[in-house]
Simulated assay, not measured.
Amino acid sequence: MQLFEIILFSVICVCAVVMLYYRFINPEPAQQDPEPVALDYARSFFPVLLLVFLLRGFVAEPFRIPSGSMLSNLEVGDFILVNKFSYGVRLPILHKKVLDMNEPDRGDIVVFRYPPQPSLNYIKRLIGVPGDVIRYDERRKQLYVNGKKVEKTATGTYLPYGESEESLTFDQTIARTDGTKVKFPILNANGRYVRRTSISGTWVVPEGHYFVMGDNRDNSADSRSPAFTFVPDENIVGKAFFIWMHYGFGGDGFEPSRIGTNITAVEVEAAN
């Protein structure tokens, strides 16, 4: 996605240079009929490309879900929208925050630039904010935040597309920093086949960083894995909130029932 932004910005700059050239340096050809082809294309594409760049950079950006780490809330092939200004306004390409707004909170689904390879975008559930102590017991499949058990309630089973074994489904409830509680669906493996991407451990989230986990708890490379632990604030891209289309290339194809699905966590208890 970052490469696309750079290419888009480069094309916008080329269009601007062409228009300025024929406006101030060599205006005579612009008075002819027909006008130069380069100027015609630049005038046509510049406003459209600029609008796309501004919308993607400051308002909302589309992403496609490539893996099952967020099942069952997000399926492979979901196309989602990410709110780019939920956590403040950042400059496109530079990713420099110029205006603070809300802070990422527990229960949010966040898109972020993968710390070991920032050109890749990852999507996970935010579990820990700066200062939190996170503990995960892989054997019991139990999460703890600041010494308190994060409750989960069994809801049934789920069979991911293309899989042969069902997973156990739960609604997990987590407390946000303002005291409200939200719930969201998670999966735990049920059977012999488990991709051992999660490990037991205790982590203290440093200032300016976040701890993230996949909703598909036993099949997610996230902050529990050695590849990366914490997500720096400057790597946060935005908050995922909406599925606008689903198409599984080489899989389940077009699925209209997914369109319009709200994927934000549901508030279950207000602050006291």
Rank of each mutant, 00 (worst) to 15 (best):
R139I: 04
T155A: 14
R217F: 02
A227L: 05
T173V: 05
V150L: 10
S220T: 10
S223P: 03
A221S: 14
D222E: 09
P206L: 01
D132P: 01
F170Y: 13
I236K: 02
V145A: 05
L187P: 14
I134G: 05
T169D: 12
S225R: 06
K239S: 00
D178M: 13
Y161M: 12
S164F: 08
Y136D: 03
V194L: 02
V237H: 01
D222G: 10
G162F: 09
N146L: 05
D218L: 02
N188Q: 15
R140S: 00
E151Y: 09
T197H: 04
V150Y: 08
D171R: 01
Y158G: 06
Q172N: 07
V150G: 10
D178I: 13
N219W: 03
V194N: 08
D137L: 06
G191P: 06
E165Y: 00
I236T: 02
A189W: 04
V205T: 09
S220Y: 05
T173M: 00
P232C: 02
Q172I: 13
T197A: 02
F242P: 02
D222N: 07
G238E: 07
N188G: 13
H209P: 07
P226I: 09
Y247P: 02
K141D: 01
F211D: 06
Y136R: 03
L187W: 13
N235T: 08
N235M: 09
V204P: 11
E234L: 13
T177G: 15
I199W: 02
A154M: 12
R224P: 07
E163I: 02
G201Q: 03
T229K: 11
D218H: 06
A154D: 12
I174G: 05
S164L: 11
V212K: 06
M213N: 03
I199D: 09
N235H: 15
T177A: 15
A227N: 10
V231G: 00
